[in-house]
Design a protein around this nucleic acid. Sequence first.
RNA 1: GGCAGAUUACCCAAGCGGCCAACGGGGGCUGACUGUAAAUCAGCUGGCAUUGCCUUCACUGGUUCGAAUCCAGUAUCUGCCA
Length: 422
Amino acid sequence: MPQPSDFSFTLGTRLEGAHGRTGTIHTPHGDIQTPAYTPVGTKATVKAVLPEVVKDLGAQAVLSNAYHLYLQPGPELLDLHGGLGKFMNWDGPTFTDSGGFQVMSLGSGFKKVIDMTGPEAQGKVGSDDAVAPGKERLANVDDDGVWFTSHINGDRHQFTPEVSMRIQHQIGADVMMAFDELTTLHNSRGYQVESLERTRRWAQRSLDAHAQLTEERQHRPYQALYGVIQGAQYEDLRRKACRDLRDMRAEFDGVEAGFDGYGLGGAFEKENLGTIVGWCAEELPEDKPRHLLGISEPDDLFAAIEAGADTFDAVSPTRVGRTGAFYTDSGRINLPRAEFTSDLSPLQDGCDCYTCQNYSKAYIRHLIKADEILSGTLLSIHNLRFTVRLVDDIRQSIIDGDFYEFKDQMLGRYYAKQNRPV
RNA sequence: GGCAGAUUACCCAAGCGGCCAACGGGGGCUGACUGUAAAUCAGCUGGCAUUGCCUUCACUGGUUCGAAUCCAGUAUCUGCCA
């Protein structure tokens, strides 16, 4: 019978002088050495990359999205396949996001665009006027849940914590996220307070629904549930959110249990990302994993790992790759630039990825210019490998005791863009 | 040989007397992208300069206060008729 104890976290090496640590997450589909970056495969595919390649480049897990898979092809089909992993031919651990991100990206995230045309930013984003009136919000929040208008066919769907949990159970990922509301940096403190209270109630409902579904679906391996912490940039709200979720309990077959881990959510400003993660690390239990949602830029990874985050997902490596840019130790670079027209060198000298082992900048640039889809594949592979390797190296530096030296060296080079020959 | 119609910036193409350095594509250049409505999106693309100025719409000449737009001639191209 599946039970919360089927999922666990073992602490490894602690980072001196901070909350950072290494560890191992044990899931029914294998272990994850942390810290770890997990590629995003929203619709049960890491866009443009074969799952075997994702595995070969060192990714330990992938994260998909409940909202997108609910709309298409429907969670029943994944259940029929025996879960997300079997469905997409990924035999390692899997995560799903709850659909909480879409509350923002299809709802208030749109408001952000409108806000930018306001007095403060007037004249800076001329196109928003043209775009804004024609678009409508595709997500509307109330206390019970969120009404989504499908971007695929316009159908209306209500997402509630219970709906999200049912869908995530059907999808069958090893780690699920509680249904939350993601706010933006543009929301007022008043709205953040209101939203956080809603997210707290949704977390309890998610946990209750999860306990019930775990009982109902005993033929499946145990699926872990992370509570998602919001609270924007406010210390009191973040700390309260952590304590609330830390103490939350539900009854699993007569046994009380809480969340199996925690998702750190919200829109972050780079300057205070580490600080916010640090507040959370102080409040959250040390023996539960902490997943920072949607973050993967090198400086953010260092800051968040140092402050105590264990796993990360973000679309950046794949999206940036599909849209023509690549990561290097010296910063992110747009490959379509004319200077690379006949550059026969790999994206990054010394990179061990499949792309760099076999292709030149000039070739991949040609693919982009010629509109060939292989460019997206090759750049995604490189960017994923870059990010996975960076986090692996950070993990090793914690074990070796030279995290801070590695951080200074890496970030010094990465952000010294102005010194880069162009 | 006759008749008709074309000629616009790198390419295609709108414009048919002033609001035109000239719509829109393509191409080119640059930038953005962090729980993916994203193989997407944005800006620039005659020259020079801080509002502005200068040289352009095949060429030459005219009409007009004012022409890419009207007239005449020239060149080239395309149809149709011999």
